[in-house]
Amino acid sequence: MISLQNVTKIYPGSASPALDQITLDIEKGEFVFLVGPSGAGKSTLIKLLFRELLPTKGEIYFFGRNLARLDKKALLNHRRQIGMVFQDFRLLKQKTVFENVAFALEVLGKPPKEIEFKVAEVLEKVGLAGKEKAFPEELSGGEQQRVGVARALVKDPLLLLADEPTGNLDRNTSRQLMELLETLNAEGTTMVIATHAWDLVDRMQKRVISLNQGRLVRDEKRGTYGHEF
């Protein structure tokens, strides 16, 4: 599904690469943790997969297509196949839970009936049924992040990218969110999650890709957070 070949990313004005000669493959349906200290290159890798950034060297393939060679339309389609979850949730404060999730489908030009049906379905799935009319500020951090996940999922993405999704959540809420993501993964969505939540990584025993100073230092099928950093 995803293939990175000798990918290097050097930001303008920076002497050292944010990612250095990364080669890896991610199969459809996998659940992958990206771990490593701050500045290891996790967020850069997420942005490269979304094609918010282009690699300085090397190639990234998504279902066999080189992301660097996508035209505007293909880039749009690529991004529509991906759901993004952020550490800071990025919900629109003036919109209700329903409207925040529906927004993802309105942007794609879906008809109102379909939006209504799919939003209700996905809110049920993430455990927010009954909170449709609430505004983000009326929700707990965990609930807000569930809205973020619902918004990412409602367009049926092939891949869900999450950058520190539990960064602003307490341990218990983080565990619940990870369980939710695990369930969604079991239903077929590929997950790539950058995280510092070592206890959850250790407990879930999923594939772990460990980065340090832009280099891939470990890639285990059923790994743990590790103590190399």
Binding site: R79, R80, R90, L92, F103, V107, R151, K155
Partner: peptide
């Protein structure tokens, strides 16, 4: 803020 999110949701220019 909304425009920033739109981009991540795959909105066309």
């Amino acid at each position: 803020e909304e425009i920033g999110i739109m981009k991540y949701l795959g909105a066309s220019d």
